[in-house]
Design a protein around this nucleic acid. Structure first.
Lengths: 230, 230
DNA sequence: CGCATTTGGTAACCTTGGTTACCGTTTTAT
DNA sequence: ATAAAACGGTAACCAAGGTTACCAAATGCG
């Protein structure tokens, strides 16, 4: 196997904590299909039959979806080592939920989900790690989505900000801390516009609930913050 | 093992397509911990250490979360055969994401995630099914969350309604169909208020996009519907 | 059949937050 | 060092949708 690809596989979370030897050994019984694509070529088409999930080996690929109105939007851009289609593959779903196409020249490797689940006779320990990694990858995606739902379901901007700040406070244990996101990134996470976020944060400052300068934030009135977080 | 519990396990998705014999055989090497609870007793406490996930065997239990402001809200109510904590258990997370408490007398069974991943010497085929089921359970939860995020992320009420109607249209293949939800249920799904939903639907009727009476809906202008669905 | 309850449409009013545009400050690149 | 870009605060304006309250039609029930 091409050794440039090996680097991508080593970085792939599915092969986490497995060495080159072990990955090679696993690949032998996983029987992967490898295919290269030209720029703009489709790697998967939403709605078509899914029997394998993929790992991008080289290049970049865009995961896209056609919305109800028919216009195509990019959901994410995949880099080397990233998985696609794994959730659909392991749920009962037998068709691709999204269209993936090559942003430039790319190579992808495809695996059958049943090969992951079924042990092979040799290398059982490695296979066990594979399953553990896959369970972890999918679980973490579910957790991430769950967190997103929680934020999206809060209706008021004030509520979102307070919830976010309390979460940061609980994570750091500090009442003064640095926001790990830029304003527009935070606005995006909370699903609001940047000026609205700014405006509301300033209001909260005027009310003496918080104090801030750029990324550094100080919670001044914890009670009010909690009261406002829903 | 108590045969009333066996019924719950047979209905549990983790043991899907496994018979009584096979489940018994599996339980022997899974070494489950079984515990009974009185009404209002805590089964798990959010934030405490997680080393196992659970399956409710009998009774009902409430999955609850304390929001940032400190008030406790019920997320779901579990019935016999339902899993809890499985996502956290298989992600790296080592503490319980929610508090679960008994709604009445109940019994729960706890399994260590590593026992699911690690094969035992006997019954390998059954174990394989266990892993497959677990992967499916978690993947389907992720898909469900994903769908929820898609609805929540649409900002305009008009957009939500159009997306929902197009989805129903695609599901039924009809341009005239019955809404499976009452107005307030639909409003809840779309995360808007009932009068606002009514108002917007009437506007769409005035514009000649749809026609409706109570639960029956007719799409009159498919193009406009698609255009409005973002 | 008639009363009570549920369901859904409507209107007036008002809060929230999006939009746009502008400006000062900070960071980055050349 | 200096120009350019990114970042973030601010304000005016306005559209979307929440709230409340009321009414009519449909449904359920004794």
């Amino acid at each position: 196997m091409n050794f440039k690809w090996m680097e991508s596989l080593k970085r792939c979370r599915l092969f986490h904590s497995l060495g080159q030897e072990e990955i090679n050994c696993l690949l032998e019984c996983l029987h992967p299909r490898i295919k290269s694509y030209q720029k703009n070529e489709c790697i998967t088409i939403a709605g078509s039959e899914l029997t394998e999930f993929g790992i991008l080996l080289s290049g970049e690929a865009a995961v896209t979806k056609e919305n109800a109105a028919g216009s195509r939007i990019i959901l994410t851009v995949l880099g080397p080592g990233e998985l696609f289609g794994e959730i659909a593959a392991f749920s009962g779903n037998s068709c691709w939920p999204a269209t993936v196409f090559a942003q430039g020249k790319c190579t992808a490797l495809f695996l059958k989900p049943e090969k992951i689940i079924g042990y092979c006779d040799n290398s059982c320990e490695n296979h066990k790690m594979l399953i553990q990694n896959m369970l972890r990858i999918i679980s973490e995606k579910a957790l991430l989505l769950n967190r997103k739902v929680e934020y999206l379901a809060i209706k008021s901007l004030r509520g979102k900000i307070c919830t976010y700040l309390l979460e940061q406070h609980q994570r750091t244990g500090m009442t003064t801390f640095m926001l790990p996101l830029k304003r527009w990134e935070l606005a995006d996470l909370l699903n609001v516009s940047r000026p609205s976020l700014s405006r509301e944060m300033c209001k909260m400052r005027d009310e003496g609930i918080i104090d801030f300068h750029r990324s550094s934030i100080k919670i001044k009135n914890m009670e009010a913050l909690k009261r406002n977080a829903e």
